[in-house]
Design a protein around this nucleic acid. Structure first.
Lengths: 241, 241
DNA sequence: ACAAAAGTGTTTTTACTACACCCATGA
DNA sequence: TCATGGGTGTAGTAAAAACACTTTTGT
């Protein structure tokens, strides 16, 4: 685990990323499991270099974890409760990881920075799940997509951060036409509808949905997609360039 | 000027407050003029104690400057460009304030913390301008209300912070019914309309505005307000408890 | 021919806007 | 009685939701 003070990071400031993907008709969130004994999950996050814009830092973290850049990314909230520190997490960690102690006590110097209170800026990203190869860092045992309705219990307030990210996504969805970032380059209207339904967790009327989306005037209709099913083949769409 | 590192503040993190009031049919913003030679204006701001929630810190800063608490307060954005520091400000300051130098150079130690890059959390507040007695701190020469259309040129990105705050206010206005925080406890429909018109900088139709606001079902109608004018007396309204 | 799912058109409802009228008030 | 501004009702318009029908596809 890196000591941010050694790396010219801003102290006590972190960035947490809620990376949304879409698969299996459900919203998915990228979560890593930490590389310690015990089950500790966390959102991908990081710190801000002294000479780095916070937006750049969020992009860097995202690129490290997903391998892609030029992804949609939006700052949505700052989590800054005074109680927001890693003390509980460290206690649980120490109990299960005796190698982290010296004569039964945690190595105070090494973990001092880490147990301080952190103010964390929340960013959410929307990515095409097929273009992403999740990347572990050295503190991760694994990094995987989890259905947003079935997330593990994460450290600190990371579950609450996901909730708030989803609220912000819903608010900004229509305004910024950003849902399509979650789909592959071409998609059918039904896929778009199912995506919207999974984000808002409610059904939409098929015909009215199509009308509403096409009236946005941002999609172009391509060829039909023949699936072999015994029914009318749907058109494929793509975002207008 | 306080050195935040001496006061157990989180380093390189600040809070800037856009305090909105309403007077003279126009939105007003509380701005202080700094207590140095030269014309330096800044938004009321401050820092976050190690053991203090960021929301509490914003409330504390607001209370210091306005004397009131339980005011509407909302975090709206984080300003975190790497170039966001006080170097330009300090240069201008030094040029006009020779007493701040030692043998022609600024006292490096004293201003070191101050010239670092700061990440600032923006909060906006809505206050009843009549209940506020603006409070100077020791770094202020004055603190005054300025018409939002006629703000002075402020340090760093403070003018941009006000713009962003106004955008957020407009977006949240209907949703959170918070405009009425800017009015005194009882008000006429015309006053409410003029407030909305000043916030959105456009006219509303009188009858439709009344219908829309009353349909929100958050106001109760009180007695009439007789002004002595030769016309029908308007009703007073108050937010339902 | 049939079921399934896609495309499209029509009606209904709702919300918003524009226009119009009447009423209270004090000079 | 008059001008002024406030309250309210109604008609028109546009957007959203509900309903209905037709077309394409492979078995």
């Amino acid at each position: 685990m890196h000591n941010p003070s050694e790396q010219n990071f801003i102290q006590q400031l972190s960035i947490d990323c809620v990376i949304f993907g879409y698969d299996d008709n459900q919203l998915q969130v990228l979560v890593n499991k930490l590389n310690f004994n015990g089950d500790f999950w966390a959102l991908p996050g990081g710190f801000v270099y002294q000479n780095e814009d916070i937006d750049k830092a969020a992009n860097r973290i995202l690129h490290e974890r997903t391998g892609i850049s030029e992804i949609y990314l939006d700052q949505f909230y700052v989590f800054g409760n005074a109680a927001r520190n890693n003390l509980n997490f460290l206690d649980a960690l120490i109990a299960l990881n005796p190698q982290m102690t010296i004569e039964g006590k945690p190595n105070k110097e090494e973990y001092d920075w880490f147990t301080k209170r952190f103010v964390s800026i929340g960013y959410y990203a929307l990515v095409d799940i097929n273009k992403v190869v999740p990347q572990k860092t050295d503190i991760d045992e694994s990094i995987k997509w989890y259905n947003i309705k079935d997330l593990p219990h994460m450290i600190i307030d990371h579950n609450a951060i996901v909730s708030k990210a989803l609220d912000s996504l819903r608010l900004n969805l229509d305004e910024k036409l950003l849902a399509f970032n979650l789909l592959s380059e071409t998609f059918t209207m039904k896929e778009a509808q199912q995506l919207y339904e999974s984000i808002f967790d409610k059904p939409f009327a098929r015909n009215n949905f199509q009308k509403k989306i096409l009236d946005l005037n941002v999609l172009e209709r391509l060829e039909k997609k023949f699936t072999g099913a015994a029914n009318k083949a749907p058109f494929l769409y793509r975002i207008k360039k």
